[in-house]
Amino acid sequence: MDDPKNARRSDSLDLAYNAALTKLDVATCEAMAVSQAIDVENSELHLGFSVQIFKKLCSHSVALICAVPRSRWVKSEFENWDFACAAGQSRAIIEGFLLFLYLSQTPSCNAEWTAKLLVLYVNDCTRRAKMMANVKAVDAAEDWMRQAEELKDRLKLNPWFLNLDGKTQKRCLAGDHLMISSRDEILELAGWEKAEFYAIWDLLSQYAHVLPMSFTRMEPDGRGSGAANEADADYLTATIAWCADTLHAATNRMTAGFPSTETVRQGLDSKFEPGPKENRP
């Protein structure tokens, strides 16, 4: 005989997952509609640039909602309850939001905004150079390093950057970091509790990178198999709800910067494309 307690637990989890999925659906619909309604012409530089990051958040959210079970965004003959289907996209949304928050902050002056961009591009050029060197594309690697050095020279003349402490300047000039601010500083800006963030971040990383936690507890017809099970459903419910809240916060920030886009936020009735048939303009 089935245990009534287990049945109640299953029903409760089922309701929680469905609610989280609807929450993600609403957040994705509104974010997509807002992203397509934004007119960056004559916008402040930091807002216009941040739109690019916001659009990437939208793309990852679409990929996420297309991957999780019971989504109306896709037609499928089965439900895949393996948490791995959501880990990579969820990690990208959370990571991307921190960068979005950092770049969309109103700078104190033009020199600060320029310094932020230069540090970002130094990191980009440095990474591209390493990638080209790894595939033996020597000329391309040297060209990217030349560009990185030119950007560093500009940074060394930036008055706002020169007022930073020496350790921060050295870290930025090394090209290993995307942001001038540390991740912990951006977490504080986001209002995310540090220990909770790193716990979730580590969990997502385990499944995104196929580390031991993702496979040592697998069970036949259960955890990690793709079959419906409480462990994966728990992880999926909590993660997609957090991603929905994160995307919602990013959308709020965009509509604050571009007030005319507020009217396109119509929940599940928001209009955009590509997307589900009922959401097309």
Rank of each mutant, 00 (worst) to 15 (best):
L173E: 02
P220T: 07
A244S: 05
L189C: 10
N163I: 02
W144L: 03
A244G: 01
K156M: 13
W242L: 14
S214Q: 09
T246N: 00
R223E: 04
A148D: 00
P220N: 03
P212G: 13
T239C: 05
W160K: 02
L178V: 00
C243K: 01
E188S: 15
R146V: 09
T239H: 06
R146D: 04
T237I: 03
P212Y: 05
S225T: 01
K194Y: 03
L189P: 09
A238P: 00
Y207S: 04
A195C: 07
V210S: 14
R183K: 12
L236I: 07
L189N: 10
W242A: 13
W144A: 01
A244H: 01
F161A: 05
K156L: 11
D176A: 15
S181W: 10
L157T: 12
A195E: 14
D165I: 08
L157K: 13
W192M: 14
E150V: 02
A208H: 07
M213R: 09
S225E: 00
S182W: 02
L151P: 00
W144T: 06
L236R: 04
I240Q: 04
Q169Y: 09
M213Y: 15
E149T: 00
P159S: 06
N229T: 08
A244Y: 00
L187C: 04
A199I: 15
K156Q: 14
F197A: 05
I240C: 06
A228R: 15
C172N: 05
E193R: 10
E150D: 02
W201N: 13
M179R: 11
A208D: 05
A174D: 12
L203G: 08
T239I: 05
K194W: 06
A227M: 11
E185R: 07
A231H: 11
A148S: 00
K152L: 02
W242K: 15
N163W: 01
V210C: 13
A231T: 15
L164E: 12
G222R: 07
T246S: 00
F197H: 15
D221Y: 13
R183Q: 07
G166R: 11
R171T: 09
E150L: 02
A227R: 13
G226I: 03
C243E: 03
K167W: 13
G166N: 13
L164V: 11
Q169F: 09
T216L: 14
G224E: 04
L157D: 14
A190S: 11
F197L: 10
D165R: 05
A233I: 10
K167R: 15
R171W: 11
Q147M: 00
T216E: 12
A190L: 08
D153R: 12
L157H: 12
Q147P: 00
A148W: 01
T239V: 03
L173T: 07
L151I: 02
D202W: 15
Y198G: 12
T237G: 06
F161D: 03
N158D: 05
S214L: 07
R223L: 04
Q206S: 11
F215T: 09
D184V: 04
K167F: 12
G226S: 02
L164Q: 14
L164D: 11
M145V: 03
D165Q: 01
A238G: 08
S181I: 01
I180D: 13
A174M: 09
N163P: 02
A148M: 03
W201D: 10
R183H: 03
R146F: 05
E185S: 09
G224S: 08
S182I: 12
E185Q: 14
A199W: 15
Q206P: 12
C243Y: 08
M213Q: 13
T246D: 00
A148L: 00
V210I: 15
D176M: 13
